[in-house]
Amino acid sequence: MISIVVPTLGRPSLDVLLTALADQVTELPEVELLLVDDRRDETGELSVPGALAAYTKVLTGRGAGPAAARNVGWRAARGSWVVFLDDDVVPAAGWARRLRADLAVGERFGGVQGSVRVPLPAHRRPTDWERGTAGLAEGVWITADMAYRRAALAAVGGFDERFPRAYREDAELAHRVRRAGWDLLRGQRVVTHPVRPEGRWISLRTQRGNADDALLRRLYGPRWRTELGLPPGRRHRHAAVTAAGVLAVAGAVAARSAPPGGTTRRVLGVGTGLAAFGWAAGTAEFARLRIAPGPRSADEVATMLVTSALIPPVAIAHWVRGWWRARGARIGTGW
Rank of each mutant, 00 (worst) to 15 (best):
D88Q: 10
A54E: 15
P49I: 08
T56V: 02
R327Q: 14
W323L: 14
R296Y: 01
P232R: 11
R196S: 13
R225N: 12
T263E: 12
E138Y: 10
V116I: 15
S47D: 12
R179L: 13
I142M: 08
I4N: 02
R70Y: 13
A284S: 13
P12E: 09
T19M: 00
A147G: 08
A54L: 07
R321I: 00
R327N: 02
A171F: 03
W279Q: 10
L28I: 15
G132K: 05
R288V: 09
R150W: 07
G187C: 09
P312V: 04
R290W: 08
L52V: 09
L21M: 15
D15L: 07
R186E: 12
P126H: 07
W81E: 02
A284K: 04
V58H: 10
P91Q: 06
L310Q: 02
E32F: 06
L14V: 04
D212G: 01
A329C: 10
E198R: 15
T206S: 12
D37A: 11
A214E: 12
A54H: 11
P194N: 10
G73E: 11
V90G: 00
D212W: 01
D87E: 11
L173Q: 04
R125G: 01
A77E: 04
N71F: 05
V105Q: 12
A302Q: 03
A180Y: 00
L59D: 13
G261Y: 09
A292S: 03
S13C: 07
A243M: 11
R179M: 12
L28S: 02
A254S: 12
T56D: 03
W335H: 12
V31R: 06
A69I: 05
D212E: 15
V83K: 03
T242I: 03
H123K: 05
I2G: 01
A77T: 06
R75T: 14
L228R: 07
R189C: 08
G282I: 07
V90P: 00
G251V: 05
E32K: 09
A275E: 11
R162D: 11
E107R: 14
L46D: 05
E300T: 05
W224R: 00
S115M: 10
A77C: 11
L35N: 05
A281R: 13
L204D: 00
E161G: 01
K57R: 15
G110F: 11
R11S: 04
G229M: 01
A309D: 01
V89D: 05
T127H: 07
A152H: 05
L46A: 08
A211H: 04
L215A: 01
I4S: 01
I316P: 00
A77R: 07
L228A: 05
A281Y: 07
L268K: 09
L46S: 06
L34N: 10
L9R: 08
R149A: 06
P259W: 05
V89A: 06
G158E: 04
S13W: 02
G106M: 01
T26D: 15
A255W: 04
A77H: 11
V48Q: 08
W182G: 02
A93T: 14
G278M: 06
I316L: 15
S203V: 13
V36D: 03
L219W: 09
V190E: 14
Q207F: 04
A69N: 05
R176A: 07
